[in-house]
Design a protein around this nucleic acid. Structure first.
Lengths: 188, 188
DNA sequence: GTCTTACTATACCGCACGGTATAGTGAATT
DNA sequence: AATTCACTATACCGTGCGGTATAGTAAGAC
């Protein structure tokens, strides 16, 4: 395996375990069996390393999420697909999921949050667009696209957290259950 | 105002804004208009300062939460009170709420998470006890107290986050709405 | 065989961090 | 008047941080 991948791999483990601030570049180098100039050759800075880590792990999920948000007149179907793609994203790389979750909830003026901000937007945007389009077919949803987006993604996180702590599988059954509960919140 | 309170006040703002790791003791001192020995006189360490901050702000909420979890045979009533006390806690000091939320979701082996761990337990425990007792009156809940606890508190957080970003009031109406959605999740 | 390019090690820099040794100060106690 | 105690400032310590200047090395190009 090349050094770049080795570094990314160990950086993920360390960042997820101790956090961005508390993880030193030297420690990443030690774990990866290389020295600092090597790391700085592949990644311009500590921040650049984190940005590369996010790009590699987020990109496939965001792509699938965009597909899941393609509106074709059947909102419950879209919601199911959003939940399924998000559950699979979490399930496929739990360590990265935990890392990005802690960064999303980090203080707003910290560097970690600043780095992840564009990815939060990349996740939020397609879901928001989906609900905005669904509003046209469903009058009583008007003006609530933002609220629905936050609640849906928030609920997905709650289910994932529960599944992790209870050691339940993040399967499609759970996605179905989450969808039912979310739909109840909309039509009541 | 005495120096101890001044320090706590400014520490809250800085910790909530930039995070525990990224906030320097010197910066807290500068903002508070005192010097480091003064801070270290009142608080043994940076960690001790954070512990004091958590104790002062959490204690009243935990006390009210325990009352809200006193089971008297009416689970929906208890759930409403849990949500109400939690919403009021967030509403009364939003800055502290954001701080504790970011710490709860910080990496598990970081110092910030280590400091807040006992308070997570203090919040989790009474709610868990409530659901455990309610299990005796409601057979189809058996063995799910843990899951209900996580989901209820997770849902509360989702609603609070939504209320903050949408500038909705964290009033009792919202608590009622959250309860309805949660109860639907239980009995389906 | 020389030159270029990609990559890697040694050794170091300046800096900000958490924390403290020392020396007070002013008010209450005896 | 002497002593004690709670509190505060100056100046400093050791450490570890992110990042880099320098000097290679090994492989392919010409």
């Amino acid at each position: 395996m090349n050094n770049r991948e080795t570094i990314l791999e160990h950086a993920l483990v360390l960042f997820a375990s101790f956090g961005y601030d508390a993880t030193g570049v030297q420690e990443i180098c030690d774990q990866s069996g290389i020295t600092k100039p090597t790391l700085y050759h592949y990644f311009r800075s500590k921040r650049g390393l984190m940005e590369a880590l996010l790009a590699e792990n987020y990109s496939p999920y965001i792509k699938r999420l965009k597909d899941a948000c393609e509106y074709r007149g059947d909102l419950p179907q879209n919601i199911a697909e959003v939940l399924r793609s998000t559950f699979r994203f979490a399930d496929s790389n739990l360590l990265f999921y935990k890392l990005q979750f802690s960064m999303r909830n980090a203080p707003a003026r910290g560097e970690a949050y600043d780095i992840i901000k564009p990815w939060i937007k990349a996740q939020h945007e397609p879901v928001f667009t989906l609900f905005s389009e669904a509003e046209r077919d469903n009058g009583n949803m008007r003006g609530r696209a933002q609220a629905y987006t936050i609640t849906l993604l928030g609920m997905a996180n709650a289910y994932i957290q529960q599944a992790v702590e209870e050691n339940i599988g993040l399967n499609d059954d759970l996605a179905y259950q989450a969808r039912q509960q979310f739909m109840y919140g909309i039509f009541s």
